[in-house]
């Protein structure tokens, strides 16, 4: 396991694209340190030769017929867009 269960909260919040207030950083930082200290116990489990499970019972290579079918109508797909124009989602300028 990692030596010190400390979260670099600023770095992780940046990875998660989440703006945190100074109070949130302080509270989450200490709460998550407590949780990490707890989950460190997993380091004691002997997992030599054990395969990881991504699912309880994996279902692999699921295929369906490659048949054309109707998708969601544009109006329905855009129904919840915060801003839209001419059947497109409006976003802030990306390139100056």
């Amino acid at each position: 396991m990692a030596d010190t269960p400390r979260i670099d909260i600023e770095h992780v919040a940046k990875l998660a694209r989440l703006a945190l207030t100074p109070e949130e950083k302080a509270v989450f930082g200490s709460q998550l340190a407590g949780i990490l200290q707890r989950v460190e116990a997993l380091g004691r489990v002997d997992v030599n030769g054990v395969e990881p499970s991504a699912h309880a019972a994996a279902v692999n290579n699921v295929w369906r017929e490659d048949a054309a079918r109707a998708g969601l109508p544009v109006a329905d797909a855009l129904r919840n867009a915060p801003a839209q124009r001419d059947h497109m989602v409006v976003v802030p300028k990306v390139v100056e």
Binding site: A2, V12, L15, A16, L42, V45, V50, P52
Partner: peptide, 23 residues
């Protein structure tokens, strides 16, 4: 935050992969 951390570079094997094995 916790989920991002356990998947982040340097911690993935120690936390996420190990948890999948314990699973």
């Amino acid at each position: 935050i916790l989920g991002t951390y356990v998947l982040s570079s340097g911690y993935y094997d120690a936390f996420y992969l190990r948890a999948q094995k314990v699973r």
